[in-house]
Each structure stands twice: as C-alpha cells, then as structure tokens.
C-alpha cells in the first residue's frame, strides 16, 4: 500500500472536511482506483456525478497511473456567477 496526498477544491473541501486528505491505495494505482476509493469513502462525491481529477496540474484520464510524489487535485465544478 502507498499513501497518496489529495488536494481538495470547491465543494470537495466540504465533502472531505479540509483542504487536503490522505488515502491509502495500492502502489501504481490508477485514477479509476482513486475515484472509486474516494467515492466509497465519501458518498457525496459520487452524487456530484462529474468532477475533474488533475495530476501535476494536468487533466488525468481514468487509466493514468499515479505516484505518491504526484500532486493530485479533486476539482468539482463551481456554478456561481
């Protein structure tokens, strides 16, 4: 197992209860693995239906493999104007 640090943006800060959380996953986990682990733990995240995951300031696809050195950000939509 490896511990990944996750940054939260927008409503994800409220869902996680802070600006950053840590989550333990397998080494060489994928974005898809991360997504399902987070949604298991935080059901409200799943209810959003769509949120972006960025790794090192770049949009990450489901199959991307993450490392514990990566900066991983959960970015939900914001809708105010």
């Amino acid at each position: 197992m490896a511990v990944y640090k996750i940054l939260a943006f927008g409503i994800a800060k409220d869902i996680f209860g802070g600006r950053a959380i840590e989550i333990a996953l397998d080494e060489r986990a994928t974005i898809e693995n991360l997504r399902s682990a987070l949604e298991d733990k935080y059901s409200k995240l799943k209810q959003l239906s769509s949120y972006m995951i960025a790794v090192n300031d770049e949009y990450a696809d489901a199959a991307n493999i993450i490392s514990t050195h990566d900066e991983i950000a959960i970015i939900p939509p914001v809708s105010g104007g």
Binding site: I11, K44, Q47, L48, S49, S50, Y51, M52, Y59, I75, P76, P77, V78, S79, G80, G81
Partner: peptide
C-alpha cells in the same frame, strides 16, 4: 463537457448557500 460530462446540479451549493 470534457471536464464535467454530467453534473448533478442539485448537489452543488450556489452563492446564496455557500457565499461568495
């Protein structure tokens, strides 16, 4: 839609709820 294909709008707070 590349970022957010399908959002459930009811789950997102607006300015009146969350402030701005």
């Amino acid at each position: 839609r590349d970022l957010f294909p399908n959002i459930d709008a009811a789950q997102l707070p607006n300015c009146a709820d969350g402030g701005v």
